[in-house]
Amino acid sequence: MRLKDKVIIVTGSTTGIGKAIAKAVLAEGAKVVVHGLEEDLGIQAIEEFGSERTVLLVEDLNNDGTPQRLVDLAVKTWGKLDALVNNAAWIVSSDINSTDKEFLRKVLDINSIAPFLLIKSALSYLERSKGVVLNIGSVNAWSGEPNLLAYSVSKGALMTLTRNLGDVLPRTHGVRVNQINPGWVLTEREMIRKKQHGLSENWYEEIPAMYAPSGRILWPSEIAAAAVYWLADESGPISGQVVDLEQHPLMGRNAPKDASTIHGK
């Protein structure tokens, strides 16, 4: 097992990509702090995973002290911390007209500042274990879509945080920091979100080749498989890296005018 007995915090792990990562690392022998906002989904996740190697915290990352409570729970339960996966995020639509100062601050608080505070809270324990931080970003960090302005800005900030700490922390604390930028992923909430945008019930079965050359979009389990590599010892000394996981190139690609009504993440 590639992660045997490693203690890992995975934020936002009661649904979607986070849940898939929690499931994958548990399969590789890890112990996981499961985190989310909804108690019912948290209880369902623990029932699905089993309680032997999981513990649950249901709390908003934007609350004062939540990052420290997540770290304390891991250490209290298992006596150490080996890895932190900053996956939780607020995926919310906005453009320049609908984004004001308070809204932008809230998105940055959840998507950029909370991960930073979690890293700070976890750092002394990660230093002891020569551990790793894995941030889950988005391909929208590179520029984003017109209707994902605040979200895209927050993911750009997270990417810079990864690059900066990924350079500094291996030298000062022996802790590696890397990031995965998922493309368009078929999560439960993405299915609901697109239906709310007016797409059909089975919209994901007929994705234009422009967005899905393979004929489908990514699955959460495929992001989770990549996450295991970055959390495991086999990724060696690699740090400060941001890896885009999408099925087409992002730079210099010509999207049609209606791109913002189709693509998401």
Score class of each variant (00 low, 15 high):
N135R: 07
E127A: 10
V168A: 06
N147D: 11
M191S: 14
N181S: 15
E205I: 09
A150P: 00
W219F: 15
Y204A: 12
L148C: 05
I96K: 09
L165T: 05
E145C: 15
L165E: 01
R216L: 02
N164F: 11
G131E: 08
A122S: 04
V168P: 01
S143L: 13
K120V: 11
L199Y: 10
V175I: 02
M210N: 13
N140Y: 11
M159V: 07
I223W: 02
P182N: 11
I136C: 01
W203R: 06
I96R: 11
Y204M: 13
P182R: 01
Q196H: 05
A122H: 00
V139N: 00
I217A: 05
K120Y: 07
A224W: 08
S138R: 10
V153H: 02
N97D: 15
H173L: 02
I180R: 03
G166L: 02
Y151K: 00
P170E: 02
R163V: 05
E188W: 09
E145R: 08
E145H: 07
L148Q: 15
P115F: 03
N135A: 03
V175A: 08
R163Q: 10
Y125D: 05
S112R: 01
R189D: 07
T160A: 09
G137C: 04
W203F: 03
I192T: 13
N147R: 15
R193P: 00
V177F: 14
E206R: 13
T172Y: 02
E102L: 13
L218D: 12
L134A: 06
V132P: 00
P146G: 00
G156V: 09
N140A: 12
L123T: 06
Y204W: 14
G166T: 10
R193M: 14
A224C: 04
I217H: 05
N164I: 14
I136H: 01
L104H: 06
W203N: 14
N181D: 07
V177L: 07
L126T: 10
L108C: 12
V107W: 00
I119V: 14
V177C: 07
S214P: 01
L148F: 14
E127L: 08
L108A: 10
G174N: 04
L186F: 12
G166Q: 02
S214D: 07
I192A: 13
L104R: 05
L186M: 07
S129R: 04
E206H: 10
P220R: 14
L218T: 11
A150I: 00
S112M: 11
Q196T: 14
R128G: 06
P146H: 04
N164C: 09
L161P: 00
I119N: 02
S112F: 06
R105D: 09
N97I: 03
L169T: 02
L161V: 04
